[in-house]
Design a binder for these strands. Sequence first.
DNA 1: TAATAGATTAGAATAGTTCTAAAGTATTGA
DNA 2: TCAATACTTTAGAACTATTCTAATCTATTA
Lengths: 138, 138
Amino acid sequence: MENLSKYKEKLASAGLRATKQRLMVCKLLFGQKQTFHFNIEDISRLANKSFNKKISLATIYNTVNEFKKKGYLKEISLKGNKTFYDTNTKHHHHFYDEDMSQLMDIEDKNVSINYLPKIPNGKKIRSVEVLVKIEDIK
Amino acid sequence: MENLSKYKEKLASAGLRATKQRLMVCKLLFGQKQTFHFNIEDISRLANKSFNKKISLATIYNTVNEFKKKGYLKEISLKGNKTFYDTNTKHHHHFYDEDMSQLMDIEDKNVSINYLPKIPNGKKIRSVEVLVKIEDIK
DNA sequence: TAATAGATTAGAATAGTTCTAAAGTATTGA
DNA sequence: TCAATACTTTAGAACTATTCTAATCTATTA
């Protein structure tokens, strides 16, 4: 419970008051050693398991969406029904393991693209995302 | 109505009988000069407009899913609620226009990647997809 | 401490997709 | 050709993810 102030700042800067539920969400999202990938259900399940406390889905959706707007979380471009988020907001890429349905980060510096077609008139590039789908060597 | 046999073959090879509704879906999907991007609702709307005929959503979902399994259509990896499909099944990449919510193809030969990190043990690459998000120059 | 502003919540509402069961259509074998 | 069978289509139910709503609760402020 030592670095709660870090989370309080984060919440404040996103225009959110620090409440018990939001602090729990922060702890789950940003209290990990490594960045991670999750969906809303994961957070709900983790809150149950880690704190023995049920946080309503509405609260989780609200908090996650505010953090996304603020740039503290990134939504991942992946097909499928559920929305996935990434606590790694640095520009980077992904491996997607088709057999495990699992995502792994690829650091931006580990991918290089040396040619792209010219972009349409009046447009500029916002981001370039590479998704490397991998599967078991059968 | 001249190249219906082309569609009949396609349906047969996907294990589907050629019915009025499925032939309409085929015409909409594969009868275009250019490859295109669509979702289920688009096909439903197009059937209404082009043939003045309502095809049930269930039929469209079934047919599109069978074609996807068979490799005649590709599902596009994009966040968002609706699933998008691509009639271009060649390996290729996309521009995604954030302002217009519009997809454009980038031919595979127009993108080159000269370095990728090594892939995890026991895994091999299935595909490498590049998504270039673009936006208006404000 | 009272008043008020904001937060949380359960559950309703919505949207995309899949499932189901009944009715329709095509195919097959006699 | 006809009946039996197999496959299709369909409307609507069911399901799932997400958002909305309105009532209750909590925190802040004066």
